[in-house]
């Protein structure tokens, strides 16, 4: 009797953990979710990474904002329920009784499964659309890209015989600007086949013009990551990895290697610029002239370069009395591969 007297009274139906709490939670959750979603979409959204410097970056920013807006009610719901439980459903001092046994609730389970399935499937459809619509969303599509910028044509033959030849790309045409990105330990170089096939350590792009990046490597695996442009494509030796974007705002952006590639991987970055059409053409033409002497020495333009074979190496090695490499940069068996 004494024990019964000391135990707390059973909660009245609808007071603790009952319908009244559920109603309060629902109302508060809806209000907070509306406020939270608006804040995320309108205040935080425009500052979401990676920004809006290019078409692919803007697309990614929209996607991240959409995901954040969808996640906001979920996060608020979890935290609200958590806080409510701590504040109102906590164990009272001296209360050592067990809670009421819980049985399955078919309605709640069905609602939960249906809602989450709908969200996941909707996101799958949305994600697929967002991958296709912005021409691969700035990601490397491999050597034969499926999704290309609408209304563009990729030039396939280039005049590399004369480094100072007239450019074969003009702004405002359907001929897409091609930039070959070449990774090597530990620097990026950029080759412009439509501008005499010049190769430079500077990356310059015109605003408002679709760009096709042909990404490859001369040695190990690197990864070309133009963060503010929303472009990321692995640079594999012997492979051409194509990515597209259209810069939409003039300004600086940074290029980093995002694949661990050796001791100076962390230092393998450079700053690049998006400039006006006229500035870009002027820059490219001046680079053609400035780099003409070294452009003549470059190998013929190709989508990939075999890092073990160098033209004329046979001649140089022969004169050096070295024949073991068979004309290659290094003997393929050096070192012995496991």
């Amino acid at each position: 009797m004494a024990a019964e007297a000391s135990s707390p009274a059973a909660p009245a139906a609808g007071s603790i953990g009952g319908r009244r709490d559920g109603l309060w939670l629902l109302v508060i959750w809806i209000v907070l979710s509306i406020i939270g979603c608006l804040l995320v979409a309108l205040v935080w959204g425009p500052h979401m990474p990676p920004g809006a410097q290019s078409s692919s970056a803007a697309s990614q920013q929209t996607d991240i904002t959409v995901l954040a807006v969808i996640a906001t009610p979920v996060i608020i719901g979890v935290l609200l329920y958590f806080g409510w439980a701590i504040a109102f459903w906590r164990q009272k001092p001296g209360d050592e009784t067990d809670a009421a046994p819980i049985h399955g609730n078919t309605k709640i389970q069905a609602t939960w499964i249906t809602a989450t399935a709908a969200i996941v499937l909707a996101l799958a459809v949305y994600g697929t659309y967002e991958l296709i619509a912005p021409a691969g969303a700035g990601a490397g599509e491999g050597p034969q890209p499926i999704w290309k910028p609408a209304g563009t044509v990729a030039q396939t033959s280039f005049n590399c015989q004369s480094p100072t030849a007239a450019p074969t790309w003009q702004p405002g045409t359907s001929n897409i600007l091609q930039v070959q990105v070449i990774g090597q330990q530990w620097a990026w170089t950029y080759r412009y086949p439509q501008f005499g096939c010049m190769e430079t350590t500077q990356l310059m792009l015109p605003v408002g013009e679709p760009v096709q990046f042909n990404v490859t490597s001369l040695d190990v695996i690197h990864s070309f990551w133009a963060y503010q442009l929303g472009v990321k494509a692995d640079a594999n030796p012997g492979v051409n990895n194509v990515a597209y974007t259209t810069p939409e705002h003039v300004g600086q952006f940074v290029v980093r290697c995002s694949e661990l590639c050796g001791i100076w991987h962390g230092a393998m970055y450079n700053y690049a610029n998006v400039v006006s059409d006229s500035d870009f053409v002027n820059w490219a033409k001046s680079q053609q002239v400035q780099l003409a002497s070294v452009t003549k020495l470059l190998p013929p333009y190709a989508l990939t370069y075999d890092p073990t074979v160098v033209n004329n190496m046979g001649k140089v090695n022969q004169q050096l009395g070295l024949t073991g490499a068979g004309g290659g940069y290094y003997n393929p068996a050096d070192p012995e591969q496991p």
Binding site: I182, E199, T200, S293, V294, L298, P307, V310, V316, Y329
Partner: peptide, 15 residues
């Protein structure tokens, strides 16, 4: 040291 050709001739330019 003795000579070894550049893998990428672009590094043959003084900058």
């Amino acid at each position: 040291d003795g000579c070894t050709p550049l893998r990428n001739p672009v590094w043959g330019q003084v900058t």
